[in-house]
Design a protein around this nucleic acid. Structure first.
Length: 515
RNA sequence: GGUGAGGUAGCCAAGUGGUUAGGCAACGGUUUGCAAAACCGUUAUACGCGGGUUCGAAUCCCGUCCUCACCUCCA
């Protein structure tokens, strides 16, 4: 169902098959995607952002290729960690959850992630969760253990009863026993069994169920939610690589045991790699994390997104953190990405300022070649994205197209070349640039809006005010008017040392804060 | 112990058998009062190490070293 027949079919790496294979959807022209979202006990770090961006890219690519995508991303707003954190802060767990879920949405929106079609919450899916557990008990795949005293009962999944257990993560049950540290829990029939429902004491944060008051186990919500919105056997299930075991393995076990003889729970499994700091996985438990909000304070959202996209979604990303001598913390890799975003926006700004005649006839050779190179770059970009979301190649194509645009713009500015031919190349190239950027989810605002917001952010980081810089610039403009170039150069140098670059253009002097 | 990911030029990072990845930094050129931006060129016959297959290997095979992750909460 490609909207453009010349583009190759989409293929992705499937963790279950351990290979790249063509995407097969159960319903022509439609794609169903379920992604594991956050557990809302704290703000998101850039590892969460990476996962969201990776699957946002998937959804964008699918939509660009003509698929109608139903994208479900859950919010685990009921969890022991939320309860524990709420006890620390004195907040109601539900309030903490709701607050963090809102911040997560804000962060991901800032990073250009399109809102999922459905974002179900555990707290609003309890009846469906109870229903799946009930099915599992009826299918002998799970068993209830009565609670004691005023505690509700527990329900456990009978791992050994599910024949396919381990197929996603490549583990076998007996090898796991020797390696895993398993807490002795007398209520379980087998140490491998995991909780579907956990009984809670009277007065605790809990919901009613046939087994007494309690809360759902960690994995069951995804089985219930995906069934609710996508049904059994949906197309793609996504999440971070650390979820393969046990979370996704358990989802498969639950869903396939609840709906036996109905085929695979999900047709294809995609997993994103980690964000590392100093070669170690960024994680809450290690404490080596950078929150999305930290990152957004120091860099533009577009730059963060580009940095994440510039690495293949399955590989690791090293998030560089550098402490400057003055104590400030910077992210050099993201700064680098921000320069690239600057370049692309600057190119677009030049295009926007231009009004030019457009040739419709046969183009002279050099322009024809430029046009061919743009079209080849565009083709390459979308072919790469179709090949397991190779975004880095699409980004490379972006630079190639931008270089052609700037080359044409330079010719135009210098009043050289064939203007209508230049106009035609610029028209095609800028359209291709925007189209690719759109699928990548970058260059989402106007160049002027970007310039305005990055200037404000960079000035704030430098501790300078706009009027202060404007004053200096005006001083220099006056000096130049009097041909006092020594004074003008001194001011230029002074501004340069604090990170401000000047540009003497035909319409006067403009300035920019360097990243 | 089991399972998986990765080691590519100063740095970041694509690439799974044969013609350019791309970016950053540095340097040279065009342009500029000087700069910046932009464009062109150079740095770059790079692929952890040792064997092997092949006319040809970063890419396939065997061995080996190193890093990281999962097996416990984790995107």
């Amino acid at each position: 169902m490609a909207s453009e027949p010349s583009l190759p079919p989409i293929q992705v790496y499937d963790t279950l098959a351990r290979s790249v294979h063509p995407l097969a959807v159960r319903e022509e022209g439609k794609a169903s995607v379920y992604c594991c979202g956050p557990t809302t006990y704290d703000v998101a770090h850039v590892g969460h952002a990476r996962s969201a961006v990776a699957f946002d890219l998937l959804v964008r690519v699918l939509r660009h290729r003509g698929y109608t995508v139903t994208h479900v991303r859950n919010v685990t707003d009921v969890d022991d960690k939320i309860l524990a954190r709420a006890k620390e802060t004195g907040e109601e767990p539900t309030a903490l959850s709701a607050r963090m879920a809102k911040l997560y949405d804000e962060d991901m929106e800032a990073l250009g992630c399109v809102s999922p079609t459905h974002a179900p919450r555990v707290s609003e899916t309890i009846p469906e969760i109870v229903d799946v557990i009930d099915r599992l008990i009826k299918n002998d795949a799970a068993y209830a253990v009565p609670g004691e005293g005023n505690r509700g009962g527990d329900v456990y999944f009978r791992v050994r009863a599910f024949r396919g257990y381990g197929k996603l993560s490549g583990r076998n049950i007996d090898e796991m026993r020797s390696g895993a540290r398993i807490e002795v829990d007398e209520r379980k029939e087998d140490p491998l069994d995991f909780a579907l429902w956990k009984g809670a004491a009277e007065g605790e944060w809990a919901w009613d169920s046939p087994w007494g008051r309690g809360r759902p186990g960690w994995h069951i919500e995804c089985s219930a939610m995906s069934a609710k919105f996508l049904g059994h056997g949906f197309d793609i299930h996504g999440g971070g690589m650390d979820l393969i075991f046990p979370h996704h393995e358990n989802e498969i076990a639950q869903s396939e045991a609840a709906f036996p003889n109905q085929g695979n729970f999900a047709n294809c499994w995609m997993h994103n790699g980690f964000v590392n700091i100093d070669k170690e996985k960024m994680s809450k438990s290690l404490g080596n994390f950078v929150t999305v909000r930290d990152a957004l304070q120091r860099n533009d959202a577009e730059a963060i997104r580009l940095y994440l996209l510039a690495h293949h979604y399955r590989g690791p990303i090293g998030w560089e953190v550098e402490k400057l001598s003055d104590g400030r913390v910077v992210f050099p890799g993201v700064d680098d990405a921000e320069k690239k975003i600057d370049y692309l926006f600057t190119t677009l700004a030049r295009v926007n300022e231009l009004t030019v005649a457009v040739s419709s006839g046969e183009l002279p050779k050099p322009y024809n070649e430029a046009l061919a190179s743009v079209n080849a770059a565009r083709q390459e970009a979308f072919a790469s994205l179709a090949d397991d979301l190779a975004a880095a190649n699409a980004i490379a194509a972006l630079y190639r197209i931008a270089a052609t645009l700037n080359e044409m713009l330079d010719l135009h500015v210098r009043k050289k070349g064939d203007r209508p031919a230049i106009g035609r190349v610029i028209g095609v190239a800028s359209h291709a640039l925007r189209e690719i950027a759109d699928v990548l989810g970058i260059l989402r605002v106007s160049p002027t809006a970007y310039a305005r917001r990055t200037r404000a952010q960079r000035l704030a980081l430098l501790g300078r005010s706009e009027s202060e810089i404007d004053g200096k610039v005006q001083e220099r403009v006056d000096a130049r008017a009097q041909k006092d170039f020594a004074r003008a150069d001194a001011i230029r140098k002074e501004l340069e040392t604090i990170g401000v670059e000047l540009f003497d253009g035909a319409d006067g002097t403009t300035w920019k804060v360097r990243k």
